[in-house]
């Protein structure tokens, strides 16, 4: 392998050096391409135009607007035009409800990301062997990925039904009494998290299996010959090798959980008593629900969300940078 590569490179270069005299009689081409590359700025940047227009109108401008709105108060007619300085932010951080909402958001991330990754990891490690049976299993485990937030939430809200839902039925079978899955302040956020964990398992398993599939066979073989097997092989060889995928799933899973909206909207509408209201849902409640149109306050919350996601993304890039160093 290592000897053939430079050889073929040498062959290539010798072919190229032979070709140069052939190319020489045609200087017009060269100068033409050179002239082209000199006038790139205008003609070639056209290729960026369609995407750039969309991004300018629907990402850059709204980003600026969010900042402007967060410094504005809403007048009686619902237009957010009066400049009020940092009043929205003062209201935000002196509001005990907002602290609760931030805690809910963090808890929701914890409740969704940790179980999703733990369960997906166990399943993918068990599935990591190419066979017909495993291919069927993989398809079955991937199915939740097809479910939209609204479809998954509708299915789970039937399970959560206190009177005739299946979850309470199972509890009763074991001699317990039913739980108000969505109506009890202690359980609402957990129930939404449970739904989310189910929805995300498929995606996580697909990513982890792709990572496990790219682990070189000889590494596994060498570890086997050294006597590693079963759990030890998984723990010391496989898990470290798919660390990039695990890291990716933790970061994207966290960001995704911060952005969750549909399952909260369908299952609890943030209740009871805002026990399942997260940051994004509170943005919706202040900005849109019941024609509130409190755009100033909601935009201040949006800026907090942007900041949190930016911090996590920077951590992600930091982690990836380290990964490249290792590789």
């Amino acid at each position: 392998m290592s000897t053939s590569a430079p050889q073929s490179a040498g062959q290539n270069s010798s072919i190229r050096s032979q070709q140069i005299p052939v190319e020489k009689p045609e200087p017009p081409h060269r100068s033409q391409t050179q002239r082209r590359s000199q006038r790139t700025p205008i003609t070639q940047y056209w290729y960026f135009l369609p995407a750039s227009i969309v991004f300018c109108i629907f990402v850059a401008y709204p980003l600026f607007q969010t900042l402007r709105l967060s410094l504005s108060g809403t007048d009686l007619f619902g237009s957010a035009d009066t400049f009020v300085g940092v009043r929205n932010f003062v209201r935000l951080f002196t509001n005990p409800d907002f602290v609760k909402i931030l805690i809910n958001t963090a808890l929701f991330a914890l409740y969704t990301v940790v179980p999703t990754i733990a369960i997906s990891l166990v399943i993918s490690l068990m599935l990591n062997r190419e066979s017909l049976v495993n291919r069927v299993f993989r398809t079955v485990f991937a199915l939740p990925f097809a479910y939209s937030v609204s479809a998954a939430s509708i299915v789970f809200s039937a399970f959560f039904n206190p009177a005739t839902g299946l979850f309470n039925e199972v509890i009763k079978q074991f001699g317990g009494s039913g739980v108000g899955w969505l109506t009890d302040q202690r359980f609402a956020l957990l129930s939404i998290a449970l739904t989310t964990v189910w929805m995300n398992i498929g995606y996580n398993i697909l990513v982890l299996l792709a990572g496990l599939g790219s682990v070189p066979e000889d590494i596994v073989e060498a570890a086997r010959l050294d006597g590693a097997s079963g759990l030890r092989l998984q723990h010391y060889i496989m898990i470290p090798l798919i660390r990039p995928q695990l890291f990716f799933l933790i970061v994207t899973g966290t960001i995704q959980s911060l952005e969750s909206f549909g399952q909260i909207h369908v299952l609890t509408k943030g209740g009871p008593a805002s026990s399942s209201t997260t940051l994004v849902y509170d943005i919706y409640l202040h900005g849109f629900a019941n024609n509130n149109s409190n755009f100033g306050y909601a935009s201040a919350e949006a800026l907090v969300l942007i900041l949190v996601v930016a911090i996590i993304t920077i951590i992600q890039f930091g982690g990836m940078g380290r990964k490249v160093d290792v590789a």
Binding site: I57, Q65, T66, E259, I283, S299, I306, V309
Partner: peptide, 17 residues
């Protein structure tokens, strides 16, 4: 960079647009 901005965070200005 556009991937860094959560769509939910800029939903108000987009709605107004």
């Amino acid at each position: 960079g556009t991937m860094m901005i959560p769509g939910e965070a800029i939903i108000i200005p987009n709605y107004l647009t």
